Simulated scan of single mutants.
Amino acid sequence: LTLDEPHDAIIIGARGVVEIDELREAEHESQSAFPFLRSTRLTEPDDALRGFAEQNCHQRRDRTALIDLMQALNHTMVYTPGATDVDTCAAQAFAGGAGVCQDHTHAFLACARSLGIPARYVSGYLYTEDSAHLASHAWAEAWLDDAWYSFDVTNQLARPERHLKLAIGLDYLDACPVRGMRRGGGHEQMHAKVFVAPQQ
């Protein structure tokens, strides 16, 4: 979308119906997972993250180890809206001990990749009956036993039974819901509203 005329607002709306298989634990793909071993500026592990991954997983490289890592990250990084922003990298959020789902996911990706496990960023939505918690959401997927397994650090969920996947990538900038650039004066703000409901 390109707008080359003066404007006060842009409204982007999307709606759809998503079918979720609550029994499916993993997503099988034929494409190589090795590109998701790469680190980015937002997911580059420092010594603290590497040590944290080794401390919680040791020599294990299985789903149980990554569930332990997920839970440890949740306890170490307190969910705190406003503690970080979209440019905060995994190492900074981990050092600060606080963040949101984006930071939890970046830290998990940094740890998993440091262990030699391909992992990718997922953006989408999480269905919950509490409308106060409806917003864009992020979680990780890791490549184990030739399939992608979900790890939602923020909610400590290891099965995508309530997750609505929209995009995948190496980090937030690869899979963010809306991305763009503005030229000219003035200022900008972005607001998002999410409505998720089960179909009757």
Rank of each mutant, 00 (worst) to 15 (best):
F94Q: 00
R113M: 11
H104R: 07
F34D: 13
V122L: 14
V86H: 06
D68P: 04
C57Y: 08
L49R: 06
S30C: 07
S150E: 09
Y79L: 13
E44F: 10
A33H: 02
A33Y: 00
C57N: 04
A90M: 13
E27G: 05
L73M: 12
A112W: 06
V18K: 05
D62W: 09
D8P: 03
S150K: 02
T84N: 00
S123W: 06
E19G: 08
L144T: 02
D146L: 05
A147R: 09
T105C: 15
R120Y: 11
Q55M: 07
T80S: 14
S30R: 14
A83G: 03
F52V: 03
H137K: 11
P35C: 06
R38P: 00
L37F: 09
N56T: 02
I117K: 03
I20E: 05
G51N: 08
D146E: 11
A107T: 04
E27Y: 11
P118G: 08
D62K: 01
P81C: 09
G124V: 05
S30I: 09
R113T: 13
G116R: 06
G16C: 06
L134M: 15
W148M: 07
D85F: 08
G97K: 02
C89F: 01
F36W: 08
Y121G: 07
Q55E: 15
P35D: 06
L144M: 01
L109D: 08
P118M: 14
A33I: 04
G97W: 10
Q102N: 13
I12F: 09
A14K: 12
A132Q: 11
A147G: 04
S32W: 04
A107R: 02
H133N: 14
Q55W: 13
L42M: 15
A110F: 06
S114P: 05
S32V: 01
P118E: 13
A90L: 05
H7I: 13
R60C: 05
R15G: 15
D62C: 01
Q59I: 10
S30F: 08
E54H: 03
L66C: 06
I11V: 14
L37E: 07
P45Q: 03
A132V: 13
R120H: 13
C111K: 01
T88A: 14
T88S: 14
T43L: 10
H7F: 15
R60L: 02
H137F: 07
G116S: 09
L66W: 01
L42S: 11
F108W: 05
G97Y: 04
F34E: 09
C57L: 12
A132W: 12
A110V: 12
V122R: 14
W143F: 09
T76D: 12
S150G: 07
Q71V: 02
H75P: 00
D8W: 03
S131T: 15
A112F: 06
A90W: 13
S150P: 09
A138I: 10
F34S: 04
T43Y: 08
E19W: 02
Q31F: 04
S114H: 07
E19R: 00
T84W: 00
E25K: 14
V78C: 11
Q59K: 05
T128W: 11
P6A: 12
V78L: 08
D62N: 04
A135L: 01
S150R: 07
A93E: 08
E129P: 02
R61K: 00
T40L: 10
G13W: 03
V86I: 15
E25N: 13
A119V: 09
D8C: 08
D68I: 12
Q59P: 01
S114Y: 04
A9Y: 02
P6Y: 00
D62E: 03
C101P: 11
E19N: 00
